[in-house]
């Protein structure tokens, strides 16, 4: 199951995780773009037109849930996966309420992530 150049936009401010995600997807022939925070989310999505968005919850400036709300409000329908280390039900509910398609806990298994992505991209 390879990416065939499908585009993924990743919002993540932790460099280690960003690097892990990027490597994993790039090597599976996805095109990846990294953003450090969600302040320019709408603009970035408009410019890059990704097939999928992955967002960390905690970021400076604008967090994943806010950015997700913004995107949906702007009519962006790209699937969004929220990535979080908070094992908190509240957060998950808010993420899904904001219009995310899936909520994934860190630490994450890249394989699982790919499995979640597959139906969203098809």
């Amino acid at each position: 199951m390879l990416g065939d150049g499908k585009k993924i936009l990743i919002f993540e401010d932790n460099p280690t995780i960003a690097l892990l995600l990027r490597t994993f997807f790039e090597r599976r022939r996805y095109a990846v773009k990294l953003c450090e925070d969600g302040t320019e989310a709408v603009k970035a999505v408009r410019e890059y037109a990704p097939n999928l968005i992955i967002m960390d919850v905690i970021m400076p400036g604008k967090d994943g849930i806010e950015a997700c709300t913004d995107l949906r409000r702007e009519g962006v329908r790209t699937p969004i996966i929220i990535l979080s280390s908070k094992a908190y039900e509240d957060d998950k509910q808010r993420g899904l309420a904001a219009g995310a398609n899936a909520y994934l806990l860190k630490p994450f298994d890249p394989k699982k992530l790919e499995e979640i992505i597959a139906p969203l991209l098809s």
Partner: peptide
């Protein structure tokens, strides 16, 4: 307030 809204803390 913007700064406070984005702290890395559980709750």
């Amino acid at each position: 307030v913007l700064n406070l809204l984005h702290l890395d803390y559980m709750r």
